[in-house]
Nucleic acid binder design. Structure first.
Lengths: 191, 191
DNA sequence: GGCGTTGGCTAAGTGGAATAGCTTTATGGC
DNA sequence: GCCATAAAGCTATTCCACTTAGCCAACGCC
């Protein structure tokens, strides 16, 4: 039995690739083992189980997404930054349909890299919102609104929830334009 | 073997109750059969399988949600209608945490009731947007934006994605207020 | 009351996750 | 270089969910 030379990193990376090909829900230990050319139980030498794999995949995807969001917003401000970030967000979801759902898993407090990735993603959003003069509670609310809108759109799109012929790209542009308008007049003291 | 007197309707209704108790992902045919006091294969006399059950549950939940959205918006207009509908939406997701995810499944074209429920839900949203003077392409875009924002928020909330102490209720109010602002100045001819 | 339809059942197969326990490989100390 | 040991494979087995096949009993109609 020649050794394949697996380790957790190669395993998680291959899981990410596999998920993008077959879908997040179809990512199974059995499929991963088959892909790597080992028997299923062999994976347990490197990862605690299916749930741990999902968590590590989430950390990987979140880190990737955070980096892309940060890069997109760099050197831009206001509506420019918002549009660039929103495009990067949806683009990542399109390019990595299997990884994207993993980013929605809440970071594991016991995994510093996962926590850091989540923090970086939120920080990227915060930075954009600072360009609108939003801080503290307003920034928290606006961050939640932005995440909700982007994730909701991408999730509905992936689920095939947009049946009408109207182009989805344009609807997304309008959504982001609407967010821009909303953030510009975001209430500082609403009740 | 005394007959329990099952039929598809009671089966789907019980599945809805069970899903709300244990979660959508934990709704299994095994759990449902146990709950109904029959052996698992007996369910197949009434439903084609696990996927068909999920589809029927989606039809049920979508119909319920459509009704609640329609009721909430009735007799209101503009921002009033928007807020009432948004509250009804999130309220439904909270009261029915197991049914809500089912509403995201795309209606089965072969199930007229399912299709009708989906149509009613979208129609309720359209009616609210007409109060903002939005029609045609603008209404399509705005509907997608509204659905995205509401679903995204509810999904992130359910996933535990809002870690900070800032009250989630207030964030939701701000989101809806932002949508109101955006819809009032929704671009009629953007490009 | 017979009989067909229907709604239960048991049995068995598939596929994924997980654990136990064995064997082989790679490696580091002497 | 040899060997002890840890690591990385393996097979076998259990558990759980879904599904199909095929049997039998109950109910309902004439």
């Amino acid at each position: 039995m020649p050794r394949v030379g697996l380790n957790q990193q190669t395993l998680v990376r291959e899981a990410a690739r596999l998920a993008d090909e077959v879908g997040y829900q179809q990512l199974t230990l059995a499929a991963l083992a088959s892909r790597l050319g080992v028997a299923l139980p062999s994976l347990y030498k490197h990862i605690r189980g299916a749930d741990a794999l999902a968590q590590k995949l989430s950390a990987l995807a979140t880190a990737e997404l955070a980096t892309e969001l940060t890069t997109a917003a760099a050197g831009r401000a206001g509506g420019d930054a918002l549009r660039a970030m929103a495009d990067a967000y949806r683009d990542y979801a399109h390019r990595h349909p299997g990884r994207y759902p993993a980013t929605q898993r809440v970071p594991d407090p016991a995994d510093p890299e996962h926590v850091e990735a989540g923090t970086r993603a939120v920080a990227a959003i915060y930075a954009v919102l600072r360009g609108y003069g939003l801080t503290d509670d307003d920034a928290v609310d606006a961050t939640r609104a932005l995440r909700s809108a982007l994730h909701g759109f991408v999730a509905l799109e992936a689920a095939g929830g947009f049946g009408l012929p109207r182009e989805v790209d344009r609807s997304y542009q309008q959504l982001v334009a609407g967010l821009d308008v909303a953030f510009r007049s975001w209430p500082s003291a609403a009740g």
